[in-house]
Write a protein that binds this DNA or RNA. Sequence first.
DNA 1: GTAAGATTTGACCATTTGATCAGATTCATT
DNA 2: AATGAATCTGATCAAATGGTCAAATCTTAC
Lengths: 223, 223
Amino acid sequence: MAARTTTKRKARKAATPDTETRAKTRGGEANVERILDAALSVFAMDGFAGARIDAIADLAGLSKPNLLYYFRTKQDLYLAVLKRTLDMWLVPLARIEPQSDPRTALTDYITTKLEYARDHPKASRLFAIEVMRGAPVLGKVLQDDLKQQVDGKVTLLRRWMTQGKLPRRDPHHLIFMIWATTQHYADFSTQVEAITGRTLQHPAFFTAARQSILDAVLGPEQD
Amino acid sequence: MAARTTTKRKARKAATPDTETRAKTRGGEANVERILDAALSVFAMDGFAGARIDAIADLAGLSKPNLLYYFRTKQDLYLAVLKRTLDMWLVPLARIEPQSDPRTALTDYITTKLEYARDHPKASRLFAIEVMRGAPVLGKVLQDDLKQQVDGKVTLLRRWMTQGKLPRRDPHHLIFMIWATTQHYADFSTQVEAITGRTLQHPAFFTAARQSILDAVLGPEQD
DNA sequence: GTAAGATTTGACCATTTGATCAGATTCATT
DNA sequence: AATGAATCTGATCAAATGGTCAAATCTTAC
């Protein structure tokens, strides 16, 4: 077992180092990214408690002590991964602005979220795991940053609805519905694929999912 | 630590044994249920790899060897918990039948799913964790039982839509939307509460969530 | 009451895991 | 080439973990 681990690492190191941008940056920075990628995979799969540093190190192609040279504890690493992913997570919502056309803004938002679910399913699962655990790390961020942003969008949506530019719905639940449905395709891709045989990777499937959400959120009128 | 564990257990045992139906059934059977409840809590929180047998035993008020007397391995216990929850999970969908009124059937289904999310959030999270891990245990069940059931409902929904009894939507994505939104309130209750300050426990909040989903699924016409 | 079985426990074990550390190796700069 | 800092490794540790076991305690049937 220990032998296999060592073998794996040596294999990567012995392999051509030109595949990655090894010479471009200092070794350290490239390693940090490799570690964060590996950590995302493992944390998203096994959760914080279930994740093993060895597994992350192996996946990153480093020895365990070497990984701990960059991140001193498992907690630090978990925090760093969450932090890195958080920005990407909050950006799309901010693009719903007062001067936007309501239906266009929501269409773009849904499309972006679905693309994100397609292209970054692990990040989606990481957040799911963190939030399902009661958000011990992100709790503050949810209550502060996220709540504030959502509050803003809720009043904006409400205004648009009052002006008849959007079908009347509870704005909070509307947002939750968008989050839930889009993330569902990432978090439950196993189930989705077991039932339909398709993934968001299929363009037609992606389009159908997108249209379904749009119909549900924007009502019957076509866009 | 070991001291605290022992204390905890002794505390429960020393406490009034009349609270639970201790005398009714043989101790063993009552313990099995207590273990399964505790296991559900812990597995739903920490996942399979992260769950600690000690934690489950403590929560169930038993010693670790005593728990292992009922379930010989962690795997066995995990399987038993999943199995116990699975039935409850699949029942509501079956109640959508050809002779049902389409809109009533979907309304009932959504209501039931949302009630389930409110009353059994841990079960919902357990499934979420299992599926997110790639469904290593439930994989077969998803591909066989669940797929077959869904296929049946999909054709039924499609027929109803052809007959104009339901708004035209992709039936698969319609079902996913119902699953995603209802489960969202269970799995992400932390986030939902951080943003709205409410839970499905609030009757008004429950009703609003229910109505939002109904509006999205059934279209604008009131029921 | 007592024997047989069911249940419970404390002690214990092998393995795994997060983390440490001293020393080796590599790298950049002069 | 030499120096100092950055990076990396093998060996190792203490704690935790899943699981075992023999013995103790409790139940039940006679």
